[in-house]
Write a protein that binds this DNA or RNA. Structure first.
Length: 490
RNA sequence: GGCCCCAUCGUCUAACGGUUAGGACAUCACUCUUUCAAGGUGAAAAUACGGGUUCGAUUCCCGUUGGGGUCACCA
């Protein structure tokens, strides 16, 4: 049995589209699952769309996602180069073979004539706007003469009339097209570069790709590709056209309606694990109820049969939830470097926090966040003293007698030596007991004093993380700075 | 408009002729609790419509409607 080979063949537009990520992922999963090879090929045959640094960025982003390929621009393989702009000679050679066999032909029509033709057809309301094969009528001598005189030309695919092109799509089944609705596609542009259709077919064959897994937007040009395989006399790969990723309004996912770049999601603090997990589930499932996967588990479970046919709306809500899930499943040790990165990007960058301290902060906050950077925004008080005290919490929890209570607590805390969480709890309990009040009467104002807010980790985690000395300072500060407010009479 | 594809809760989906149509996100309620979360329990929420085939259709066929994709010297 032949080795399975798949490829991800993006054009370097400057960023990795999340739809592209899913296509890459499915290709990757399918190859890995079947012990095959996954190839990255750069389709940069449109010179007008050249973007500086796009290829490097694409590669970096793919690697950030852990989608490593076996052959690609920077990974040597037997069928390189893997950048189409470096394969121009190959395409020319191949397209000339088609011309010789009459499956393709030179066309010298000007853009003006083409535009006029289209306009006329539009006016006549012809069923299908197509090139009129005008240049097919040229004799070999005429063609030769024009070529020698240096006239600009393209090479077109010679689509036959009244034929049916059939192919089997793994996801959609048998699909048929009538060639009367297919245009004589340009294969080689006047600048000498191939179009997608030519380069794609030639490379997929030369690179021994066995499964073409790509987005549904390619479905209607697949008959052209089928014809090319037949004209070249090549064995066809298997096709699998993936359902599209959709905007909330169900149109094709686009920049205009939110973020589409993987880099954006990365910058916003989404974990690669969450992004991969989420995107894998858009259009595929293992047939069970499972929602949480790691990449290696996806490899194990993936099959093209599990891919469904209809488009999937990219639902930020679920991605957010998954991000939280992945954060909660990670160990404190794994989260530590992520938090350090976030600190480096924050206003606390110049400060030094010990790993021990940060780990305590992480375990206190881990189940309260959806993003790692929320450790800094939601609990800034772990990185500096409270800069203000939440007004509503003062109203609710800071009573006239609170300073007295907290002073007693400070006394109790000062007696503790290297306290554990339990020691803090005992100390607080004994103060409450002495005062004959409920623990909550102390806990709430204490939380306010320590953090400036009314929400956050358990109070003893808070005390333990901040430590005895710092806690006492904060309590004293609060006693000085918070003024009791008469309850509003309304 | 032509061609092609698609159609189960708001969203992602399960069901591959027989289920009280299941799960997840989001929403709401309850619960746990020192707060906020997380967790637990529960509620509301779907087979687009019309014909067939069949003892029986979410499931198979046809049509309608709706949505999407594509019609470049872009990929």
């Amino acid at each position: 049995m032949n080795e399975i080979r798949t490829r991800f063949a993006p054009s370097p537009t400057g960023y990795l589209h999340v739809g592209g990520l899913r296509t890459a992922l499915y290709n990757f999963l399918f190859a890995r699952k079947n012990n095959g090879k996954f190839i990255l090929r750069i389709e940069d045959t449109d010179r007008s769309r050249y973007v500086e640094g796009a290829v490097e960025n694409l590669i970096q982003t793919l690697k950030w996602c852990d989608l490593f390929y076996d052959e690609g621009p920077d990974v040597d393989g037997p069928y390189g180069p893997y950048i189409q702009s470096q394969r121009l000679e190959i395409y020319r050679e191949h397209v000339e073979k088609l011309v010789q066999k009459g499956y393709a032909y030179y066309c010298f029509c000007s853009p003006e004539r083409l535009a006029a033709l289209r306009e006329e057809q539009l006016k006549l309301k012809v069923p299908q706007i197509k090139y009129d094969k005008h240049c097919l009528k040229l004799s070999p001598q005429e063609v030769q003469k024009k070529l020698e005189s240096g006239e600009k030309y393209v090479i077109r695919l010679n689509i036959p009339e009244n034929q049916t092109v059939k192919f089997y799509d793994i996801i959609r089944g048998e699909i048929e097209f009538d060639t009367n609705f297919i245009d004589d596609q340009v294969l080689l542009k006047s600048d000498g570069y191939p179009t997608y259709h030519l380069a794609n077919v030639v490379d997929d064959h030369l690179m021994k790709i066995t499964h073409v897994i790509r987005g549904e937007e390619w479905l209607s040009s697949t008959p052209k590709h089928i014809l090319l395989y037949e004209y070249f006399g090549w064995e066809k790969p298997q096709f699998a056209h993936l359902p599209l990723l959709l905007n909330p309004d169900r149109s094709k996912l686009s920049k205009r309606q939110g973020d589409v770049a993987v880099e954006e999601y990365r910058a916003k603090g989404y974990l690669k694990e969450a992004l991969i997990n989420f995107v894998a589930l858009l259009g595929w499932n293992a047939g069970d109820d499972r929602e949480f996967y790691y990449l290696n588990e996806l490899i194990e479970k993936f099959s093209l049969e599990g891919v469904n046919k209809s488009g999937a709306v990219f639902d930020l809500n679920k991605l957010l939830w998954l991000n939280g899930e992945h954060i909660r499943k990670k160990s404190v040790e794994d989260l530590l470097p992520l938090l350090k990165d976030e600190i480096k990007k924050s206003k606390y960058a110049s400060q030094n926090f010990s790993d021990e301290y940060l780990k305590l902060v992480i375990s206190a906050m881990q189940e309260r966040i959806d993003f790692v950077h929320e450790i800094i925004t939601k609990s800034y008080y772990f990185f500096e003293r409270p800069i203000s005290y939440e007004e509503k919490a003062i109203q609710k929890n800071w009573k006239q007698e609170t300073p007295e209570h907290l002073n007693l607590l400070v006394d109790a805390l000062e007696k503790l030596d290297n306290p554990s969480k339990e020691d803090y709890e005992k100390a607080l309990n004994s103060v409450a007991e002495k005062l004959q009040i409920s623990k909550g009467k102390i806990i709430h104002p204490l939380r306010l004093a320590l953090s400036g807010t009314s929400a956050g980790p358990g109070i003893f985690d808070l005390l333990y993380t901040l430590g005895k000395e710092e806690s006492i300072i904060r309590i004293k500060n609060a006693i000085q700075n918070i003024t009791y407010k008469e309850p509003k009479t309304s």
